[in-house]
Design a protein around this nucleic acid. Structure first.
Lengths: 232, 232
DNA sequence: TTGCGGGGTTGATCTATGTCAAGGAATCCA
DNA sequence: TGGATTCCTTGACATAGATCAACCCCGCAA
């Protein structure tokens, strides 16, 4: 790993409060690599050899069972994935592939567990990160169980809109096929859901979405902080 | 908290490796209480004042949004709930009510966080517990996203059957209304799903289920350890 | 320019699941 | 003992969403 990459990594919330010597030891054995798009990084069922941290780009988590496949989430900078498997020294529950060209930090899981034992501040950061991931999945699960497809789309659009500055327009951060899978529906159904939202001021132009009537969107979507807020 | 209850609690995986003095301090401020059935313990949105540990009985986690309500999971002895909210000092994402008369340990969340800092072994146990909960939700999420209602029921029956000794019969650990909600369907649909499984050797007598043809059940259900195994 | 391919859309149709209404069986209780 | 209640089941119907097929649009390569 190159010295010029270090400060970038050190700034991550996960490492910022870690002791210098422990951080150095961890970086000594880690890799910061750039991967092309659509490259499979891990497969569900594999043993967790590394903790992955997305530094640039984005990664799609997905899972398969029977013949079906579904996207389980998108990880954008700066986020970790499969932290739980690493800590438990267990197999991955999800597969992961790059969605775009991505810079990713790989830390051997054994060293993560070791650092957890040696550095109380790091342990604290790990637990907060893990708890955040946990709550993220609970929210996704609630979203899927308590809402219809159109409601899920509407709330997702409102969320992206907020994340991107609430300017009235937003960019979908992935292609519609992936978005459909993340939302738990087929691409055809996503198209129809966009049509359903047209009367609520949603205009679609490729991956650019305009929200012309936020009031009525919110009436329809009924956003709920206990599902949609990523910060809490 | 009564002295006679202590050994029972001390034996929990979460506390077994904790230093004596830290454990004593924690118990000093905790409550072991017995609650009647159907009692609301916490409501989503409330600040996490306590960590809850189910010692006896069982607790249903559920969530609401819009007018809908859905069971998010069942906690049986010995299991914790809302650990993530406690560690993050955030609000609960789920509500909880007792399903039966239940003995529950309440530990002030502030003291949990304190003990986490002071006792490295406890921190380790906390992280493993949190990681297990996390993976549990991911599995539920995969179950819901990748399977039909009938498949979810079939796999759930196989799981209970295994948990209960694989004797050919099993007892549903909750009423069918709750089971339906846990599986993400209506009670009516659960009835029909049981009928669909009849040709596969599933006989229903109240809450006692007989699996007369495991082979064909497994062909239908296609159980997947990355969804159905609770241990990994 | 043409041909091709990927992603997206649309329409027709099918299927799974939800909803509503009714009824049955067990349980509780006065 | 006889409601009343709760839980479950069943049937008829409605709806959301999936599936299949066609097509469109646009970029791109030959």
């Amino acid at each position: 790993m190159r010295a010029s990459d270090l400060p970038q990594v050190r700034a991550l919330r996960l490492f910022s409060s870690m002791e210098e010597k422990h951080f150095d030891a961890l970086m000594e054995v880690s890799y910061l690599q750039t991967f092309p798009p659509q490259l499979d990084l891990i497969a569900e069922g594999d043993l967790a050899d590394f903790l992955y941290i997305v530094v640039e780009g984005s990664v799609e988590l997905y899972a398969r069972s029977n013949g079906r496949e579904s996207a389980m989430g998108l990880v954008r900078p700066v986020g970790t994935f499969i932290l739980a498997a690493v800590l438990k020294d267990a197999v991955y529950l999800m597969s992961a592939r790059t969605a775009q060209r991505s810079k990713i930090l790989l830390i051997p899981s054994q060293n993560i567990r070791q650092a957890f034992q040696q550095d109380a501040e790091f342990a604290r950061a790990i637990v907060l990160e893990l708890a955040s991931c946990y709550r993220g999945v609970v929210k996704e699960y609630k979203d899927l169980k308590l809402r219809t497809a159109v409601e899920r789309l509407a709330n997702r659009l409102l969320r992206y809109h907020n994340d991107q500055g609430a300017s009235g327009t937003l960019e979908l951060p992935h292609d519609k096929r992936t978005l459909a899978s993340v939302l738990g529906m087929t691409p055809e159904n996503l198209s129809r859901a966009f049509n359903t939202l047209k009367p609520y001021g949603v205009e679609v132009d490729g991956s650019t979405i305009t929200l012309a009537d936020l009031k009525s969107m919110e009436t329809l979507a009924k956003p709920n902080p206990l599902i949609d807020d990523r910060s809490t």
